[in-house]
Design a binder for these strands. Structure first.
Length: 376
RNA sequence: GGGGAGAUACCAAAGUGGCCAACUGGGGCAGACUGUAAAUCUGCUGGCGUAUGCCUUCGUAGGUUCGAAUCCUGCUCUCCCCA
């Protein structure tokens, strides 16, 4: 894996890059659609590849481990073979489930024991076996096991948790270096910065993980409910320390606004369930603001979903029709909304990249930001 | 023709003397959603610009009672069974 910076915006920390992987090149900044169970919910890979132009998608270690299970994935020859996605994939380690499934897990120094949300069975996830699992899955980029802390989080807890994440990183990284890929192509391991919203902890954490010679670095534990200002400040603190010549991945973020502010602060990679989940729930992102397609005002609006949109669904279907589908819980509604939102996110990233190359990122960002946040 | 059951808010359906402006679903309206336990969750849903307040509501017209959606009587309508 290599990362080359192709352009920098002079008025901000934004940069455009090319991340080379065994499954293809990734133009950054990039948004990575979330495909927890090996599928981006409601979106056929054909559309994902050709209409949305996704360059890389996510998978999730915890969820794939429980179902279909490693045997199935190994028998298939890895997740790429299993789900027929031939471009890069990144898997989260289960660290987010430490946060989202907090009621079903116990943390010890050794690792995290999850009580399966499916059948109640117990499973110990360690920094080492999470590497093994991600080897079985065959992710191009695998994530270190971390503890994603909630917000708010007491300073003392945040500090202890960060130290635990650091100890896990040492073990995980060591295990990563001692093991080999199963399917004949290179895999890479990203450490994760923690430290909640505390500047000194974020700083310490960024410094610590920078000592590991990794292909890229991630910022975790943000967008868990903290005010945006705090999130942006943390990103600034961390990115001032992380190696300049490696990709930085802001985990779980976020809104279109969050992405642009992240890019301005030197983030290269993002992922978030928002375009798909919120799409299924009737929220559409457009260049002219946010639409709640369930609202009555769209009932008789036969204009296209998004006149400025790039996806085929934007031109083909009307707002009234999409409202009708979502109101009736029709599967097609969730699909159209997801495709639209993902196409919008990817297009936004593409445009951001171009503006960085043209050295016009800041003015462009400030211009589109107001419109993006608007409620239509 | 004979016998029986029932009429409650947009729909379905509880309630059978005071705790009922009326359980609960659905529908409707709105909101939330950030490394996906989410095609999920939350709020509101008779009127009165706020309300421990007032007004109008449980087929309809009367009555009993301190008090009725709930008890009594007449009327109207619906459904079921037998002929």
């Amino acid at each position: 894996m290599s990362f080359r910076i192709a352009g920098k915006d002079k008025s901000s920390g934004a940069r455009a890059g090319v991340l080379k992987t065994s499954h293809g090149d990734i133009m950054t900044p990039v948004f990575m659609p979330v495909g927890t169970l090996g599928t981006v919910k409601g979106v056929d890979f054909t559309f994902l590849e050709h209409d949305i132009n996704a360059q890389i998608i996510l998978g999730n270690t915890y969820h794939l481990f429980l179902r279909p299970g490693l045997h199935v994935i190994e028998n298939a020859g890895g997740l790429h073979k299993f789900n027929s996605w031939n471009k890069p994939m990144l898997t989260d380690s289960g660290g987010y489930q430490v946060f989202s499934l907090a009621d079903n897990r116990k943390i010890t120094d050794e690792g995290v024991t999850f009580k399966s949300h499916i059948d109640g069975s117990s499973h110990l996830f360690t920094p080492e076996n999470v590497v093994d699992t991600q080897r079985s899955i065959g992710a191009d980029i695998m994530m270190a096991l971390d503890e994603c802390t909630p917000y708010p989080c007491e300073y003392d807890y945040a500090k202890k948790s960060m130290q635990l994440t650091h100890r896990w990183l040492e073990r995980g990284f060591n295990h990563f270096q001692k093991t080999e890929p199963l399917y004949g192509y290179n895999q890479h391991y990203f450490p994760i910065v923690q430290g909640s919203v505390y500047d000194d902890l974020r700083q310490q954490s960024a410094e610590f993980i920078s000592t590991f010679d990794a292909a890229g670095y991630a910022i975790g534990g943000l967008s868990v409910g903290e005010p945006h200002d705090m999130m942006y400040k943390s990103i600034e603190t961390v990115n001032a320390i992380l190696p300049m010549d490696k990709p930085r991945y802001l985990m779980g973020v976020g809104t279109p606004e969050n992405l642009l502010e992240g890019i301005a602060r030197g983030v290269d990679m993002f992922d978030c369930v928002m375009p798909t989940r919120n799409g299924r729930n009737g929220m559409l992102f457009t260049m002219d603001g946010i639409i709640n397609i369930k609202n009555k005002k769209w009932e008789n609006d036969f204009s296209r979903i998004d006149e400025k949109g790039t996806s085929f669904v934007d031109k083909r279907y009307s707002k009234a029709y999409l409202r009708h589908l979502i109101h009736n819980n029709e599967l097609l509604g969730a699909q159209i909304a997801s495709i639209h939102n993902l196409a919008f996110y990817l297009k936004l990233m593409q445009e951001a990249r171009q503006k960085i190359m043209d050295n016009e990122f800041s003015t462009w960002k400030n211009r589109v930001l107001e419109k993006l946040k608007k409620r239509r």
